[in-house]
Design a protein around this nucleic acid. Structure first.
Lengths: 321, 321
DNA sequence: CTGTTAGCGCGTTCAG
DNA sequence: CTGAACGCGCTAACAG
């Protein structure tokens, strides 16, 4: 059922002009002057035929596509990241670019980077690009724009410690998730917590890894609570982990925040619906989005690689700490 | 800084063969017999040069890319959907396809469908494709594979009602989210609830729309609870809405499940961590994934449009109902 | 000014 | 295993 594509040649023939003219009209080429009548006619024919220029041919010729690829090396997509990317996608659309996502870990496997199949104008990452991938992209002149870095996570640790310290907590814990796709970020977050504790003369934070299954979280917490005296302050890697902590604590009838204070990170939409409402750290994404957009467009134009946008996190105080 | 791309012609020249041979070797063309030595040599040269075939040229020539585009018309990505798509993506990769996501509503706007820029081999949807989009894709011979339909949501309603009915609840409520990107699905879900109630001779379900902000949820619930006698059974559109309901109920000191029973849908990872653990409806995704994969590959090969895969939902009993 | 001709970009594929 | 045409749109050079 091979429907033959409508090509610019078809449009040219039916409107009685040359292919070149069609191209000029379709792209509003400023270096050419086309009479209004011709322009009109070409556009009408194109619309009537449902002509849509072939992205492949266009990319082949111009050497670059109008695609922006964001690589999310996670198993799931953080709601806030989804929201931000959505907004970014809309803005890019209005600039003629299309934002697509590639979700999932890549690396160890022998497969080519998705950008090989996509030839995007720009690749967006979260500062978690492997060196080999960077080289790969550099070879093809695909600029990388970073949306965030491990550094951000480090600062989160400091904020969490600072807040809990002010609340009078002296015994702190870094709670990490089991998810392997997050270990890199978790490491730098944990490091931030450790450094902040040292800075305040607190003893080094304990490290606790919590499964996301309720029973698992309960068990892991049980052993931990038996060994460590309260009050305790839990610096959670993110809000999901904080939910697991909250659930486990509830199962052990531990009072939050009196006996154990819990602070998360990311401020996911469900955070405010936790029991008690989750105190957490939020990234003020809005402020920097314009900057990110600028970076992307600049990179798409002249391949300039900009530094990562700076997103300052801040504590959102609710009931859990 | 224009690095010149390595082309198949370069590889051909350096390995002393024709471009055609390079192509045959790279694609392992079964209709050609290439001597092992030649093959070896070509592959070595290609590797040494870092040759990567141009996706654009390939697409242009063969008329189809190795891309699979999934269109998610939501603002956020349901964790289970993310997990499923991730697994699917890995499987597709091993078949030489690349799965990319386009997230966000499209439609009313004048922008072209992302597939115009991507020329994917297949488009994946959730049965929420607009007729105009379908026509658009049909014109270019891009097959659509559906990963789910509104029907599925209808069946969810029946399951929720059935379960609550067995638990002795007679006064049921359908709780919808405010998110505009979900109204279509919510409608068919609500319809399922209504039908199931009618079938059992219950009075028609009330409809309640709940904001995702805690205060909003509390307020909305307050008015509702004043008017309606308990016990009440809440059929929630999804687990997020159920969390909002749970939070609001907790704020009003309503006992769950004794006074108000709450059942969600989707079984998101956080569901088991709710207070109390959330009873919900889960889709047994695993079973059907192989089928979906088959559908996609078949569609990519010969453009066959298969019926939507059948995913049977089931109740997961926990503490909230 | 208005529009045309012709070649390019790169991998695929058919007839030798 | 090769030569050469081909897919489709872009654009420099050129003609009316």
């Amino acid at each position: 059922v091979a429907k033959k594509r409508v090509t610019s040649a078809d449009v040219a023939r039916l409107s009685g002009v040359s292919q070149a003219t069609v191209s000029y009209v379709m792209n509003d080429d400023p270096r050419q002057s086309i009479s209004p009548e011709t322009k009109q006619r070409v556009l009408e024919v194109a619309a009537a035929l449902g002509y849509e220029p072939s992205a492949a041919a266009r990319t082949l010729r111009s050497g670059t596509s109008r695609l922006v690829l964001v690589v999310l090396q996670f198993e799931q997509v953080d709601p806030n990241i989804a929201l931000t990317l959505n907004a970014l996608g809309r803005e890019l659309t209005s600039h003629g670019y299309t934002l697509v996502w590639h979700v999932g870990r890549l690396g160890a496997l022998r497969e080519p980077h998705p950008s090989a199949t996509l030839t995007p104008a720009v690749v967006l990452t979260f500062g978690d690009t492997l060196p080999q991938t960077e080289r790969f992209l550099a070879r093809f002149g695909v600029p990388i724009v970073s949306l965030g870095t491990g550094e951000g996570r480090g600062r989160v640790g400091a904020l969490q410690v600072g807040y809990l310290f002010e609340r009078g907590l002296r015994q702190l814990v870094f709670v990490a998730p089991e998810r392997p796709d997050l270990q890199g970020f978790a490491l730098s977050h944990g490091e931030g917590v450790r450094a902040a504790c040292a800075e305040r003369g607190l003893e080094p934070p304990r490290f606790l890894t919590l499964p996301m299954a309720r029973e698992g979280a309960r068990e892991a917490l049980k052993g931990f609570l038996e060994v460590h005296p309260r009050p305790l302050g839990l610096c959670c890697y993110n809000d999901e982990v904080a939910f697991a902590a909250l659930a486990g604590l509830a199962d052990h009838r531990v009072r939050v925040p009196e006996d154990v204070a819990v602070i998360g990170c990311d401020d996911i939409p469900l955070a405010q619906l936790a029991q008690p409402p989750l105190t957490t750290v939020a990234f003020a994404g809005e402020a920097s989005r314009a900057l990110v957009l600028e970076n992307i467009l600049a990179a798409a134009r002249d391949g300039a690689v900009q530094p990562a946008a700076d997103v300052p996190p801040a504590v959102v105080v609710r009931g859990s700490a």
